[in-house]
Design a protein around this nucleic acid. Sequence first.
DNA 1: TTGTAGGCGTTATCAT
DNA 2: ATGATAACGCCTACAA
Lengths: 340, 340
Amino acid sequence: MPAKPSPRLADVARAAGVSLATASRALSEPDMVREDTRSRVQEAVAMLGYVPHGAARALATRRTRTIGAVFPPVDNPIFAGATHALAQELAGAGYTLLLASHDYDADAELAATRALVERGADGMVLVGLDHRPETLALLERAGVPYEITWALDPGAMIHCVGISHRSASIRVTQHLLDLGHREIAVIAGDTRGNDRARERLAGVKDALAARGLRLPARRVIEMPFSVANGRKGFATLLKRAPGFTAVIGGNDPLAIGAFLEAQARGIDVPGRLSITGFDDIELAGELPPGLTTVRVPSAEIGREAGKRLLARLAGKAVPVIREMAAPLIVRGTTGPVAGK
Amino acid sequence: MPAKPSPRLADVARAAGVSLATASRALSEPDMVREDTRSRVQEAVAMLGYVPHGAARALATRRTRTIGAVFPPVDNPIFAGATHALAQELAGAGYTLLLASHDYDADAELAATRALVERGADGMVLVGLDHRPETLALLERAGVPYEITWALDPGAMIHCVGISHRSASIRVTQHLLDLGHREIAVIAGDTRGNDRARERLAGVKDALAARGLRLPARRVIEMPFSVANGRKGFATLLKRAPGFTAVIGGNDPLAIGAFLEAQARGIDVPGRLSITGFDDIELAGELPPGLTTVRVPSAEIGREAGKRLLARLAGKAVPVIREMAAPLIVRGTTGPVAGK
DNA sequence: TTGTAGGCGTTATCAT
DNA sequence: ATGATAACGCCTACAA
């Protein structure tokens, strides 16, 4: 199959009877070209089925109109929502998303980042603050602007858009404390390589400490995020350190798993046990009696990261830190401690 | 900020004391170069922090090592899983994913496809068979190999990896018929621009017709995929055309919504009402009593699409149609019709 | 407003 | 095994 070569801009120019330069301008700077020549060029484009050659354009302009994103498992619903919103935001500005995902693995993240930089990403979106030092160094050296999402740099040195996981977690814990709970268990996300999970756990400890309480290690279990692991984690806690009246889930799937397991064991929620989540996925509001959780505006985070990057590429300055609200959403899984 | 220009391969060559050509070979065809010169080049690379310029490489090789995917909302968990699997598969082969998503909008899909082709995608992944005719024509003209996912081309003319939604849907319906159900309602996905949703609905009708039954229009409602819409759809059906003993959901979220609404109304499932879904998302197995559904191997579809594309780019032939199994998973939401 | 020509950073084809 | 050099397709001063 000979597969005749795609038409180049020169072919368009010839067909339109103009010079290469004019054809180029007609496409990229339309109003620097006379009305009729412009339309001649456009006709030629349509006729030949011309598609610009991005690599050539990128080589000449040093811009790819591409933004790279390196995300942990995109199949986590919150990242999926952010990815979609980001892609949409970029598309609206003529940019395209280069996506790489990894399984909470800093080395894979570094490799992916390098791959995206090589592909010429004009900007990058990363998640969280846990990275190989080389990762950010690479971006700095290459002069690629980037945004950290979800988390916020405590030093306010790097551009971030996210929430304070710690203070949201403190609010959750205070809510339980206010309801009279003192014996609290935590099914945390895997904190290794995940600063958000760490901060959430730290927030629980902070809130307890503020009231002179502490969180015994036996009351904490770490599990990768999933409903199934929520069930398992809850079962383990029940065996290992029973007597708690509330469970704090590291995210909604974990909390929902705990809730389902409690239900399966005939434990009344919130009568005998309160449960909280984190993220506010759709199901949190739909599953009766409704999961008390923290609303993390994941889609907005994705969209905002895109907006900020586009603004910076356009030479506009944006505040280094963009903190989003993360309100506590009180629903039916939390209630006063039994016997109060 | 002057931002000194990134080092080019010529800088590396100079630092290593070799020619540009040799430096190039040392990096891309290591064993065409003597051991010691190769290591000299690598040192220079490390020293200068050299990162290859993808656009220049792409211009010269006419390959970007990039695969484009244009998906409907990536925040649907099944597409999210497929995206992740696809990205992983590609990364393993040194390829990167260019992702665009749209909201079941064929025009947006066409625009996205064009954007990815311009960016030089070496191959493309699309979803389903509903497209603007220009979309596939564009890919053909540009000579970009592509794979259709989820659905299968009835004509077996274009490369596909997916399942037969219609026959899976027939199996679901037969399962209900075998349980004695005759009054069946359907909460279908939005069939406009979504051939999978259409095929699933058609499958229900086929199965009924095979037993001399038909599906009254009042017993069918179409809703965009979501738990909330499952609830709404169920409520509407109940009001509009009560008397059914089974509900077929267009996907799992819709079915779960119907299930939750039924529970909220005190309708015993599966005692008085059977419910089925489609996809087998994680929650389908976790939510008691377990949702009867069809397992769609979404991650495998994504991975397989990647594999096939990589194989084709490597010049290997692959079967045009790759049909995956989509077994019926019988769980607790389906049972014999009441009073039998 | 339009045309001419040099350059963007690599790869690949020749020699050597 | 290595070096010189012509593409690759487009953009953009600069000139006209």
